[in-house]
């Protein structure tokens, strides 16, 4: 249930930012480290090293953060009420996955105003796989009255390595959830700051221009020659940093190397949106990114964070 003591502009069913703050608060209460977004362009919250790398190795870990996610291909010039090339994911990772993870998730929905006596929440099979990260897990998409509002995954493998212990990952699609709890049909109509009248700022006020500009960029203008070069550079840099940090039993530069893997992945997404990668090449680019992810995962396992003996 929504905390009734909240001022109107802080109610998660009235304001986009309040929804986010409520989730942060909820997971902070569960003992999560509340992180800020990773400072790089990523396709999904999973790419944040706080998930990808921390899911590897024996160390326990609990984190929650919002992550702006970029899907260049999903740009619609601001004309589609549901699709965005930049949107927010709220990401929770709990390692090992607790026994009551489903209950915690449902409590978090209640906290943002989804009344579980009124709404039909279902866990519908949806296995997750990220070919670029060499990762997969089993879980569900979580439906609220027929709408997918979250992804729920038990990681089995990341960067090609078996996860033990297993992490439970929750990904909330914040815009969708906000549209649902605010009762809005168009994402750009979302109330962002929870104020009314002249004080009100909508999601469109904040992001419509960006969606238009980035759609142009992603589909029409992105400099493909430069991007191809950037892909090669990121790939080479990743290998270089991995080699530099490799001290046999230990590794000293897993994180900087992984940044280059993230970069390569985003550049690939941009090239893909520009339609300059053929079907056969596509597969080989995905494999190249996966190789980087695997090598970074292997390096991480040789660091303190990855559980290697110091």
């Amino acid at each position: 249930m929504i905390d009734q003591s909240l001022p109107a502009h802080m109610r998660p069913d009235r304001s986009f930012q309040a929804l986010l703050l409520t989730l942060q608060r909820f997971w902070a209460d569960q003992g999560c480290v509340v992180l800020q977004p990773y400072d790089m362009e990523v396709g999904a919250g999973t790419f944040h090293p706080a998930t990808t790398l921390r899911a590897l190795g024996p160390k326990h870990w609990k984190a929650a953060y919002v992550q702006p996610s970029r899907r260049p291909k999903d740009g619609r010039y601001g004309e589609n009420p549901n699709r965005l090339q930049h949107y927010y994911q709220f990401q929770v990772i709990l390692k090992p996955s607790p026994e009551n993870l489903q209950e915690l998730y449902l409590q978090s929905l209640a906290a943002i105003g989804v009344d579980l006596k009124l709404h039909d929440v279902r866990f519908v099979e949806d296995d997750w796989e990220s070919p670029t990260l060499g990762a997969w897990g089993l879980g569900w998409e979580c439906w609220c009255d027929g709408m997918e509002v979250s992804q729920f995954t038990y990681f089995q493998q990341v960067a090609g390595f078996e996860c033990a212990p297993v992490s439970g990952e929750l990904t909330y699609g914040l815009e969708r959830l906000a549209m649902y709890v605010q009762g809005v049909e168009n994402v750009y109509d979302l109330n962002f700051n929870g104020r009314e009248g002249a004080e009100k700022t909508t999601y469109g006020d904040v992001f419509l221009q960006a969606e238009q500009e980035y759609s142009r960029h992603n589909f029409e203008a992105a400099d493909t020659a430069m991007l191809f070069e950037q892909f090669r550079m990121a790939e080479a840099a990743c290998h270089k940093y991995l080699a530099f940090g490799d001290k046999g039993e230990t590794h000293e530069m897993a994180l900087p190397a992984y940044d280059q893997c993230i970069k390569a992945s985003h550049v690939f997404n941009l090239l893909d949106a520009r339609g300059v990668i053929s079907v056969t090449e596509r597969q080989s680019y995905i494999l190249r990114v996966r190789e980087l992810a695997k090598a970074c995962g292997a390096a991480w396992l040789k660091t303190a964070g990855g559980g290697a003996a110091a």
């Binding site: 009344d115 006596k117 009124l118 609220c144 009255d145 027929g146 709408m147």
Partner: peptide
């Protein structure tokens, strides 16, 4: 087909599903 006898007789559930189907 929902999985809940909702306190409002299913109005919210139907409305939610209608929104998704409309989209």
């Amino acid at each position: 087909i929902s999985n809940l006898v909702a306190s409002d007789g299913g109005k919210a559930i139907v409305a939610g599903n209608e929104r998704v189907i409309r989209a």
